[in-house]
């Protein structure tokens, strides 16, 4: 019994220490919130823009120090596709021969989230279709879409060469109706912040349902032959000749558009695309 005051005192000390330490380590206590009053703003904007008088120039770097940056071997040209399957017929082919600079006539561009700033265009670079950095977007992570001029009605596939420059993801679209309705089969780098490995996804009214996913699937940064095929309600994704994902659509595809899908910050290249229809 004589020991109880000692235990009680020790317990109080320990409790006090825990309270202090926990408060220091991670405080989520409610702040003191003052009365929330929303002041009104006055408009001090002028009726027109002004010009300024340009003064003496800033000193240019005399010379500016060179920034040493490591060079990286450029990606080689995309390999040709294998011959068309016996039961399929080619509908269209897109080769992006690189000499047309921006010639993507007939292609349309989109993004997964409607954006008041508009849609950023894709480009042709060095013989490949190049996904853009969606810097136009007001939102982060607004992945970009490129819709081909031709459509696929019924069974068939979009196939072609896809390369990722480091940590991003990219793939093909089928059944595209608009930016909110399509199916996408894509692969991502191992360190991609989103969609690493294999992802097969059905997007309806902007809501994505993952049909198949294999995040641990490793893909390097070279060219890979991607094929996304639809037969009835079955979507099959093939990478370098091997099936990597299969899914069944719960609802029919709402459109017939086909195209490319890429992460919001560029880094994906597409080439030698071929749209085929099952005979």
């Amino acid at each position: 019994m004589k020991r109880y005051p000692l235990f009680i005192a020790a317990g109080l000390v320990v409790t006090l220490l825990l309270v202090v330490v926990s408060g220091q380590a991670f405080s989520e206590r409610s702040p003191q919130v003052a009365e929330q009053v929303a002041p009104t703003a006055i408009d001090r904007s002028p009726s027109e823009m002004s010009t300024i008088i340009i003064g003496s120039p800033m000193p240019d770097p005399p010379p500016f120090p060179t920034v040493e940056f490591p060079a990286v071997e450029p990606l080689p040209a995309a390999p040709e596709l294998d011959p068309i399957l016996a039961n399929e017929q080619e509908v269209a082919r897109y080769t992006f021969d690189g000499s047309d600079l921006d010639d993507l006539s007939g292609w349309r561009f989109g993004q997964i989230q409607p954006d008041p700033a508009g849609v950023v265009a894709w480009s042709v670079w060095n013989g490949a279709l190049s996904s853009p950095y969606n810097d136009l977007s007001m939102y982060p992570l607004n992945d970009v879409l490129a819709i081909a001029p031709d459509a696929l009605a019924g069974n068939g596939a979009l196939e072609g060469q896809v390369a990722l420059d480091y940590n991003t993801h990219a793939g093909f679209l089928l059944g595209y109706a608009d930016d909110q309705n399509y199916v996408v089969g894509m692969f991502g780098s191992a360190n991609a912040p989103r969609f690493p490995g294999i992802t097969l996804m059905h997007v309806v009214a902007g809501q994505a349902t993952v049909l198949a996913s294999e995040p641990e699937f490793k893909v390097d940064n070279d060219w890979h032959t991607l094929r996304l095929a639809v037969v009835g309600t079955t979507i099959t994704m093939t990478l370098d000749g091997s099936p990597v994902a299969t899914g069944t659509l719960a609802t029919p595809l709402l459109g017939t558009g086909v195209g490319a899908y890429a992460g919001s910050d560029g880094g994906a290249l597409f080439d030698n695309l071929r749209l085929v229809q099952q005979q």
Binding site: V67, F69, P70, V72, E73, P74, L75, W125, N126, S130, Y133, D165, Y166, N167, N191, D265, G266, G267, A268, L269
Partner: peptide, 18 residues
């Protein structure tokens, strides 16, 4: 940020704070 390029794309590993 200083961003290094490979082909026509930024290499994430070469995007560095300066």
């Amino acid at each position: 940020e200083l961003k290094g390029l490979r082909s026509n794309n930024y290499v994430r590993a070469l995007q560095q704070a300066h």
